[in-house]
Measured scan of single mutants.
Amino acid sequence: MQIFVKTLTGKTITLEVEPSDTIENVKAKIQDKEGIPPDQQRLIFAGKQLEDGRTLSDYNIQKESTLHLVLR
């Protein structure tokens, strides 16, 4: 499924993921596309910060959901 990741600069990254993918996994995909190390990434969905060990389905993230990427 496709999800979108919006950065603070207003750029939107499109990722191909599975509901069973972990947040860690998603961060690795963002690193592949954008070169941002996962340890600098914070992903936010519905106002919650997403934890590395959880999966997209844990957070009920469905196709075409938009996550927000904050760098630390």
Score class of each variant (00 low, 15 high):
residue 7 T to C: 02
residue 54 R to H: 15
residue 57 S to F: 10
residue 10 G to C: 03
residue 42 R to I: 12
residue 18 E to K: 10
residue 61 I to R: 00
residue 69 L to V: 08
residue 22 T to I: 10
residue 5 V to L: 09
residue 38 P to V: 15
residue 53 G to H: 08
residue 35 G to W: 07
residue 66 T to Q: 05
residue 68 H to T: 08
residue 28 A to I: 08
residue 28 A to K: 05
residue 36 I to K: 03
residue 33 K to M: 09
residue 35 G to A: 12
residue 49 Q to C: 03
residue 17 V to R: 00
residue 62 Q to K: 09
residue 60 N to L: 06
residue 57 S to K: 14
residue 64 E to T: 13
residue 63 K to A: 11
residue 52 D to N: 09
residue 64 E to L: 07
residue 29 K to T: 05
residue 44 I to V: 14
residue 10 G to W: 07
residue 49 Q to P: 15
residue 24 E to A: 13
residue 20 S to Y: 15
residue 59 Y to A: 04
residue 54 R to A: 14
residue 30 I to C: 02
residue 21 D to E: 06
residue 63 K to G: 09
residue 29 K to L: 07
residue 27 K to A: 02
residue 60 N to C: 03
residue 28 A to F: 10
residue 15 L to T: 01
residue 19 P to L: 13
residue 37 P to D: 10
residue 6 K to N: 13
residue 13 I to F: 14
residue 65 S to Y: 06
residue 45 F to H: 11
residue 54 R to P: 08
residue 12 T to Q: 11
residue 7 T to G: 15
residue 39 D to H: 15
residue 47 G to S: 09
residue 8 L to Q: 11
residue 10 G to I: 04
residue 45 F to C: 02
residue 67 L to C: 01
residue 33 K to L: 09
residue 62 Q to C: 02
residue 2 Q to R: 07
residue 14 T to S: 08
residue 10 G to F: 04
residue 32 D to T: 07
residue 63 K to I: 13
residue 17 V to N: 02
residue 27 K to N: 02
residue 4 F to A: 04
residue 41 Q to H: 05
residue 69 L to T: 02
residue 59 Y to I: 03
residue 14 T to V: 14
residue 36 I to H: 12
residue 38 P to D: 11
residue 12 T to N: 04
residue 48 K to W: 15
residue 56 L to M: 07
residue 58 D to P: 00
residue 30 I to F: 03
residue 25 N to W: 06
residue 54 R to D: 09
residue 51 E to S: 04
residue 72 R to V: 06
residue 21 D to I: 08
residue 12 T to H: 15
residue 72 R to Q: 09
residue 66 T to R: 06
residue 58 D to S: 12
residue 26 V to S: 01
residue 59 Y to G: 01
residue 48 K to N: 13
residue 17 V to H: 04
residue 9 T to L: 09
residue 16 E to T: 14
residue 24 E to F: 15
residue 54 R to T: 05
residue 39 D to F: 15
residue 72 R to G: 13
residue 45 F to N: 05
residue 40 Q to L: 05
residue 56 L to Y: 01
residue 22 T to R: 07
residue 38 P to K: 11
residue 28 A to Q: 10
residue 53 G to Q: 09
residue 46 A to R: 07
residue 32 D to C: 03
residue 23 I to A: 03
residue 6 K to A: 13
residue 25 N to M: 13
residue 66 T to I: 11
residue 12 T to C: 02
residue 68 H to M: 04
residue 15 L to G: 00
residue 35 G to Y: 04
residue 45 F to T: 03
residue 24 E to V: 14
residue 27 K to W: 03
residue 46 A to E: 13
residue 21 D to R: 04
residue 18 E to D: 15
residue 40 Q to D: 12
residue 42 R to H: 15
residue 62 Q to D: 14
residue 56 L to E: 00
residue 3 I to L: 10
residue 47 G to P: 01
residue 15 L to D: 00
residue 18 E to L: 14
residue 42 R to V: 14
residue 39 D to P: 05
residue 24 E to I: 11
residue 45 F to R: 05
residue 59 Y to F: 07
residue 33 K to I: 06
residue 38 P to N: 08
residue 70 V to W: 05
residue 15 L to W: 01
residue 58 D to Q: 14
residue 31 Q to A: 08
residue 19 P to D: 12
residue 7 T to N: 03
residue 49 Q to T: 10
residue 71 L to V: 11
residue 66 T to S: 10
residue 10 G to M: 05
residue 2 Q to H: 14
residue 28 A to N: 07
residue 4 F to M: 09
